[in-house]
Design a protein around this nucleic acid. Sequence first.
DNA 1: GCATACTTGGCACTCAGTGCCACATATGGC
DNA 2: GCCATATGTGGCACTGAGTGCCAAGTATGC
Lengths: 183, 183
Amino acid sequence: MRAELAMLAQDLFAAKGYEQTTIDDLVAAAGISRRTFFRYFTSKEDLVLGKYDAWSQTLVEALAARPADEPVWESLRRAFDVVVEYFEDATLAERSLAMEKVIHDNPALSAGEIERISRVQSELAELVAARTGRPAATDPRPTVVAGAALACVVAAKDVWISTDRSRPFGTLLDEAMGALKPV
Amino acid sequence: MRAELAMLAQDLFAAKGYEQTTIDDLVAAAGISRRTFFRYFTSKEDLVLGKYDAWSQTLVEALAARPADEPVWESLRRAFDVVVEYFEDATLAERSLAMEKVIHDNPALSAGEIERISRVQSELAELVAARTGRPAATDPRPTVVAGAALACVVAAKDVWISTDRSRPFGTLLDEAMGALKPV
DNA sequence: GCATACTTGGCACTCAGTGCCACATATGGC
DNA sequence: GCCATATGTGGCACTGAGTGCCAAGTATGC
């Protein structure tokens, strides 16, 4: 149900634009009431960014599953493989690409996306902190490592989206993460 | 006028909370009409985050003013001195600290703050790109360097705010930026 | 004194989101 | 079959942010 509503909404957003599509438009197209819609989604933004919550959990689990003696930067890169697979999946590619474009040219959505990423950052930072024995509450370094790694993902994604996808996302991410080294 | 309204609003936010303070409350306290308020500020969020726009311009100018042959990471650190000074200024400290707390425990404001920071990131990335001769449109690395540097600022700020300010902000930023090295 | 531009206020409107209540539809026990 | 309860759904009225439009007021220049 949630998934069907989200897909319908995303089609409308891609066709008419995010701002131009009201909840009333959506519920009319879906044949449900406004009130019911807000039981499935807490906000309009949730229609676009809801998937991030599940996605972030996967990411945290992937990092936690890496061997503890592996260099942190390498572990992060390997954890991001789940993201790489997601974006390079051909069946989801068109839809998620269209959504990334919708997000990209709407400030409120961009803000929401980054905000969710920064929540992932906190969780990753905790894992990095545990590995390095540096408490994230008083030492900025675990947070910095997690933040830098996610900055690599975002930068690689932006290039990948705004170019013609000739260079695979994984390669761009390797290049991005190769530009930094934690000391 | 803008400044006076912002100060009044920030006092109300600090006292009653951001969500709990309506525009009606504010305009009643200020003795102006709702309509007039929206001519000075485009949104309620603008009351809290408006200063970031001026702030970001200063930051970009500071980076542009660094010598071109200086290592980029060092230039970024020096550019951030304007931020360090701002936060360590005693007269602004109480007010800006209170606002950072307001931002911190409101998701919408956090999102807005990060969104504005990410706009600064784009501008810094352009300067980094110009220095290194790597076009930011097709090469993720300039964006990564700018993003990582700003992640250091944010991480240092968060630690600085949530601890007792015993370690100066500049020192925390040095530690944060020392945890990464661009290759 | 008069014309011009700019500022302010009032009003009605759209749209997102919430609380409350009423109704429907299952599901389970007897 | 009947009743009780839980759960999903819709309707309705409300708040609060933000906008468009028009009617004032107020400054400035001639």
